[in-house]
Amino acid sequence: MIADVLSETTERMTKTVESAKEDFSTVRSGRANPQLFQKVPVDYYGTPTPLGQLASMQNPEARMIIVTPYDKSALKDIEKALVAAQNLGATVGNDGEIIRVTLPELTEERRREFVKIVRGKGEDARVALRNIRRKAKDDLDALKGEVGDDEIARAEKELEQITKTHVDQVDDALKRKETELLEV
């Protein structure tokens, strides 16, 4: 029973860390990255659909992304969605076949804004990890009548170690992203 609680907790924490890393990748650094646009919602036949499902994306240059729709009829909708996602400050151009998205050079002020955004996402991930730990601790406390106190104490120490490992992974990913953002 204790092993089940700990394995489920480890699995949930690992998913949270992966989700945090994915969130970090959606914040723009100096180089254009197709990952920035994967989740841009496009109104495709009345349904909001992530751009990654509607088009392929390549970056031939450091600050340019080329979006090639799988369905040419969705070209206008994709272009509209990219123009609407102007938190990136991108210039969007359509030649009838593909869409070229050119990202401007990042200013120092904009880089610092992105660092704040990434730190907020990192803190959200740490809060999620602490919530998972709290639920696991409650589950372990519920087992007190069935299992000995020594086993519960050992499991709680192991839970703290699992939590620390996952928080450290989030912190490492956060530091890497901050370094990437501040790099000119």
Rank of each mutant, 00 (worst) to 15 (best):
D95P: 06
K175P: 11
V184A: 15
L75Y: 09
E151D: 14
T49R: 00
S7Y: 02
T163G: 06
A136W: 01
E178W: 13
A3V: 15
L82P: 10
M57L: 02
K21G: 08
A20E: 07
D71P: 12
V167N: 06
A153V: 15
A125K: 11
T26Q: 15
Q38E: 15
K80Q: 07
E109M: 05
I66Y: 06
V101D: 01
N131V: 05
I2D: 08
E105V: 14
T107Q: 06
E123P: 09
Q169S: 07
E123C: 13
D71F: 03
A55D: 06
A153C: 10
A85Y: 08
D141N: 13
D141L: 00
T9Y: 00
I78S: 00
D172C: 11
S29P: 09
I78C: 02
P34T: 03
K72H: 10
R154D: 10
I162G: 06
R130P: 12
E113N: 08
A20G: 02
L143M: 11
S19T: 15
K137P: 15
Q161I: 14
F24Q: 02
A136I: 05
K15I: 12
D95M: 04
S56T: 10
G46N: 00
R31E: 03
F37G: 01
L75E: 01
D124H: 07
A20W: 08
A153Y: 15
T165E: 13
K177T: 05
A125E: 08
G148I: 13
M13Y: 02
E11G: 15
K80Y: 05
M57H: 10
I66V: 09
R31L: 10
Y45S: 05
L82R: 07
T165C: 14
E97W: 08
F114K: 10
E180R: 08
G148Y: 12
V167Q: 04
L82M: 00
A173D: 06
L129V: 06
G52V: 09
A142D: 13
D124Y: 12
I78P: 06
R126E: 09
V42L: 02
A142K: 11
G89N: 01
R100P: 11
T10N: 12
P104W: 02
I78E: 01
L143R: 03
S56M: 13
K175T: 13
A62Y: 14
N87W: 14
R111C: 08
L75H: 04
E11V: 09
Y44I: 01
S56Y: 08
Q169R: 09
I162W: 06
D77A: 11
T10S: 15
A153K: 15
E123H: 13
R154F: 10
I162N: 04
L82K: 07
G30P: 11
Q53I: 00
K164T: 10
S25W: 03
Y45E: 02
R134L: 00
D77Q: 09
L75W: 04
S7A: 07
D4M: 10
V5E: 00
R176G: 00
E123Q: 13
R31I: 07
K135V: 11
L174N: 00
R112S: 02
G46T: 04
K177P: 05
G148V: 11
E178I: 08
G52T: 12
I2M: 05
I65W: 01
E18P: 14
I65L: 07
A3Q: 14
L88Y: 12
P104K: 07
S56G: 05
L88S: 01
D149L: 03
V67K: 01
V101L: 04
E156M: 12
R133Y: 03
A128Y: 01
D95E: 03
R154K: 13
L75Q: 04
P34D: 03
